[in-house]
Nucleic acid binder design. Structure first.
Lengths: 302, 302
DNA sequence: CGAAAAGCGTGAATAATATTGATATATTTA
DNA sequence: TAAATATATCAATATTATTCACGCTTTTCG
């Protein structure tokens, strides 16, 4: 019943004082405005303006409507601005799913410059999915998936982000520090420190200890890489991390690494997105940023 | 650009899940809805829904629009309800101007039942006017004027509300308590207590003391009638009040009155309203209530 | 598996609505 | 009192919204 145009009219008349001038600003004729007003007043059953001399004055009901227009019109035009940003691909949300916990550091390095570049894109990182990472991206619960398992699907595109080797990290004085590579049995008397996620999502368990049917003396979880490595450096346990991540700490902490098994554990990490999203600018931007981060990491390694 | 209909559509689709069912609730065909949507999406340059199976799912831009509609639609319909009340004469504002300070008690007695009867009418009482009470009512700064001066004007109607005599109030023990009437000179050694308004708006000054070129020993102002009369009863001064108002206190306080001058000062109080407002229900209601109050007061006097 | 059902999309025709231009009427200004 | 400034109204027209009929896709169910 009360349309946006009516609010614009109330606002314009209150600002420009006369119907005629308000009409100009609304790109209408005075006649059109007069008609609109009369029609609205008839529908509402109450006058919104009363004639005063050769001009108009708002009635109490009109004042009420003016108050409404002052509250609502800015909200409408602000929303339009935001939708314009959606249209131009500047605004959006990027929900990233992670199935690879050691990649968290890598993700942070990618997200940080991305947020600078796309100030209107909201980034969210999710780590738990009801139907797995694949289900999540297909059900639109997330928009990007960081995963070690590039399960092919017609609706998805995968991009190899980076390869890394998972290595055992020990302190300089540790007996294993001398070893080039170790067998699972050699961890049976160690305290193993990991991120706080399920064992079957930790490669050190699923790809090294479990196949050899071995266990560690003690399993301890710590959230942050820094503290984890401080603990290892202090001889309080060992951990498994991507080699490139360890390399950055070796200057400042007395740490050594060795391969897990004779061949070592080599991981390939992929970034998945829905094919339908491939034209979204900020998504392309994120993928580009991911490549840059990877290149930077390769540089650090060399 | 974003019209109310669009907000209704977003809301209805989100509530009823399918275009077809939403269309029913909006009293439109599915086709009309589909057209409206496509047109809006084209104008905004972004999809608001994406097809999912045989249904629709909101895009991020659509979610944004839904949020807007949830904020705005209730405001619009609430405003419509209020305007409906304006149309039915149930809602409004009644700004009352007072040029007669002793009438304040009378006004309170009128306003109180009026507010019960018209719960949606906002009453405001003003006592200061830039261009006088007459100017105020003509300029629509107030809607009713309570005044002792019924200056005729083609745009105004006056109604006599009540007559009263202004009398001097003294305590039982006071020398003047014996007098039937007094001359201005007899106040020259008294403390006069009045409401805190300009002297030229106090009849005791403008119609009694000033014509006789007399002054009082001391002039003190007090806001409330109760305290004023407590002071008089305690022998701390004298005051001038409408006779009917005094009568209500004489049961509980030791007070006497005497006429101001041989004839006494007789006042006629009028209620003015603009002729154009004469059809406003709640205004008629107020005037009716004013008559009732006056009748009640006459009863009390008898 | 395959037909039926449930949805959405589109184009041309039509109905509804908004807008205009010309003109009338009212008020203020000079 | 004439000129200027406003709003109101009418009939004609332009614009916009809505419908109807049909096509297409996906899901459901026998």
């Amino acid at each position: 019943m009360i349309e946006r145009l009516h609010l614009e009219i109330v606002h314009a008349i209150s600002e420009h004082k006369t119907l005629t001038r308000a009409a100009e600003h609304l790109c209408l004729t005075q006649s059109a405005l007069s008609h609109s007003i009369k029609k609205l007043e008839n529908r509402l059953g109450t006058a919104l303006w009363v004639k005063e001399g050769r001009g108009l004055r708002l009635s109490p009901a009109g004042e009420r409507l003016l108050k409404l227009s002052q509250r609502i019109l800015p909200q409408l035009s602000h929303c339009e601005d935001e939708l314009m940003e959606f249209a131009e691909g500047r605004r959006g949300q990027l929900r990233i799913g992670m199935e690879c916990h050691p990649c968290y550091q890598w993700l942070l390095r990618t997200v940080s410059p991305f947020l600078q570049q796309w100030p209107d894109v909201d980034v969210d990182v999710k780590q738990r999915f009801q139907f797995g990472g694949l289900g999540a991206i297909l059900h639109h619960d997330i928009d990007l998936l960081i995963t070690p398992d590039p399960i092919q699907h017609r609706a998805l595109d995968y991009m190899a982000v980076f390869d890394y080797e998972l290595v055992l990290v020990v302190n300089d004085e540790h007996p294993l520090a001398e070893q080039n590579w170790i067998r699972a049995e050699q961890l049976s008397n160690e305290t193993l420190i990991t991120y706080p996620v399920d064992k079957d999502r930790l490669d050190i368990f699923s790809q090294f200890l479990a196949p050899a049917q071995q266990a560690v003396k003690k399993h301890q979880s710590i959230e942050t890489t820094d503290i984890m490595l401080q603990m290892v450096a202090a001889g309080r346990g060992v951990t498994a991390l991507p080699a490139w991540l360890l390399e950055q700490y070796q200057n400042t902490l007395p740490l050594q690494s060795c391969k897990l098994g004779k061949q070592g554990i080599h991981k390939h990490i992929y970034l998945a997105h829905r094919k339908e999203d491939e034209e979204i600018d900020y998504l392309k931007g994120f993928i580009q940023q991911a490549k840059n981060t990877t290149a930077d990491i390769v540089k650090i390694r060399q």
